[in-house]
Design a protein around this nucleic acid. Structure first.
Lengths: 220, 220, 220, 220
DNA sequence: AATGAATGAGGGTTCATTCAT
DNA sequence: TATGAATGAACCCTCATTCAT
């Protein structure tokens, strides 16, 4: 255990040295900030947010309990930071990805794929997003009102664009359609997270998009 | 001590069985068990499960703190009971409703409508289901593995039936399709719960079903 | 240790039974309220307020940690309560005592004597009053503005009365004179508390009063 | 570790000795030792000793947290140093002042005046002396046994001298008389510190001395 | 069955102190 | 000397649960 700690610390120190710590003493670029965030995702995923102790996170990150409070205001702030950081990255990556294609249908496909890929490659993160972040109206309202709205709007605007281009039906409410797609994808992730079976999350993307595009009704 | 607990549990079970709650689902008229359950939904919706004290629930129900433990094993058991009771009722009502119509499309429409109606008429219950019950992997896994599976299976079997009858496309995975519909409806409720605006949840049913059936793609 | 506790608890229970607990569930008459207060005086006197843990007080009182919070809002409230209760009693006893004599000089003598007697018979209380209650501007301002003012006013009014009767000089500011007497007596107690020697505090009363009345100047 | 500590202490002592603080008692111009001391008085007066953080003091002094420990053994040591330095200065100044007059009555007057002047010109210092330094038996006993004793003895010896010269009554205990005078003056300062009103502390000197000399009794 | 006073384990957070630079 | 990031021990208070009545 002691050796693990030393190793982690050594890594942190290296990072710190490289990054000219004085400039951003409490910023994300600092090794410990990221280390605590990663540790928190792991610990929260394992034990749940409310059952996790700050001490657990600190231990997992290889820092002292008090160090957590040099980088985060309080326990809540850790959870909020996980959300904000990931959403920020997801949104910017998502926007960049969308810029590469023109077809609205293809754009939606990429959004769905990126969404599933992100969580598929980090189950702990998925658990935190699908479960831990949902358990509090306080969090939910806050998130729902900001980043999630941005995400939904991103999808909605693609749909709207598709409607203008004649790719999508005019007579569907783009806002609700966006929620439906999000809800569908979200449920895929939740199911995947909670399932004992370890199936491929990515392989579901096509199916979801297919149904969202074409519906389930048979055409005579 | 352990024996005491067991005794209490046995008692609680008997009480529950005897009272046939389904008859008067929201009234405290059928005893303190129901009163505590209703109080808990109200209190949990207001303050969140983790922030609510058992004493708050007891006060809201008009009973002493200790009385809660005559009907429930512990605080968790209250939340679990809310879920189980509501799901049980929802499932049985749902099955009854489905028996009245034959058309799979119409059946799905009714399922969606019933889902939205249930929460639409009880915002507190919606908050508990969409938020409070989601915040714990422990709960989630438990629920996901039982009642939610039954619910998803209900939907899936209707879809499968529709496929056999040629109403729905053969080349869609009925399991995933069921999750998509559930995810979409679930997201509608969550959005409604978290939204400041008080729009009609029911009016969304048709739109959701339309997109699920026909997709968003324009047909040339 | 366990036996001590049991004994204390048994006593508390008896007291409780006698006093019809339902009437004043959290009032002073309750045995535990008084027990905690006594324990706090002892513990605070021994270790100092800031160095004392609530757990120490609870242990000394023979109750659980949490029980303290059934009777006091927080740790501060214990200290404030010690002060208020003692001052209240001191003031009412003092007023009663003063009513028995008419001569202002005799009245002042009795005030001084009562003051010294109170602390003389309870060294722990004296320590708390002379030391622990003084270490915080927050407390000091609060106390100074209320009970201590009452006490000073009590003395001042006696002096004023004495001036009207011609017993005391007209040309002294009664307010300042009152503070001087109080300051003198207060210093006696503080010295006594801090002194290693265990001399009689009461025997000082006459000397203080003598100097206050007659001054130290020699008369030719 | 212990040796490090000793080294630090030795260093601090040297610094103190070299800097001859008496010359510039309130300026930080003579080094960080004095700057930290001044800062501590300000911070302790504002927030109270126990509520003040070492970091606050360091910040106020314009030095890093760790620097404080180059000049003071620990937090307590800061408070003790404030007391010792001020008392040392007060005593030496007091003794010097007394040497200028011969009349014992005049001497006492000057002592009282000097006492009030010192605090009158530095409210923060007054707060620390009247409040912050009193909140701990540990401090109190220590102080009471040393510097305060010296101060009381200074007063007592003047009184005794006055008795020998026939200025003061023979039949008063000079030790107690000294405490009375000190207690009276001390109470004046405390009242002044805690009072919302900003009256002149100096103007009280004459009144106190008058009563101490002549008493309050009217002479027929 | 019902009560509610009592329990006591548990944890987020603070902050005096250290030490590598 | 000086720095300030890091440490980790310490503690107040909450609240789920119990149990004597």
């Amino acid at each position: 255990m002691a050796s693990t700690r030393k190793a982690v610390q050594a890594k942190a120190v290296q990072t710190k040295t490289v990054q000219s710590r004085a400039v951003q003493p409490k910023e994300k670029s600092n090794g410990k900030y990221a280390a605590i965030l990663r540790a928190a995702i792991k610990v929260f995923a394992r034990s749940g947010y409310f059952n996790s102790k700050v001490a657990d996170v600190a231990h997992e990150a290889g820092v002292a309990d008090g160090t957590v409070y040099l980088y985060f205001k309080n326990k809540d702030d850790i959870l909020v930071s996980i959300f904000n950081n990931e959403m920020e990255e997801a949104l910017s990556q998502g926007r960049a990805a969308l810029a590469q294609v023109a077809d609205p249908a293809e754009k939606l496909k990429r959004v769905v794929l990126a969404h599933l890929e992100r969580f598929s490659s980090d189950r702990d993160l998925a658990v935190v997003f699908q479960v831990e972040l949902r358990g509090s109206t306080k969090f939910m309202e806050q998130f729902s009102a900001t980043r999630v709205s941005d995400y939904l709007e991103l999808i909605r605007s693609v749909i709207e664009d598709g409607q203008k281009r004649g790719v999508f039906r005019q007579n569907v409410n783009s806002t609700i359609a966006a929620k439906i797609l999000f809800g569908a994808v979200d449920e895929m992730v939740t199911n995947w997270v909670l399932s004992r079976k370890r199936y491929s999350l990515l392989s579901i993307a096509d199916i979801v998009v297919d149904i969202f595009f074409n519906g389930v009704r048979a055409h005579s």
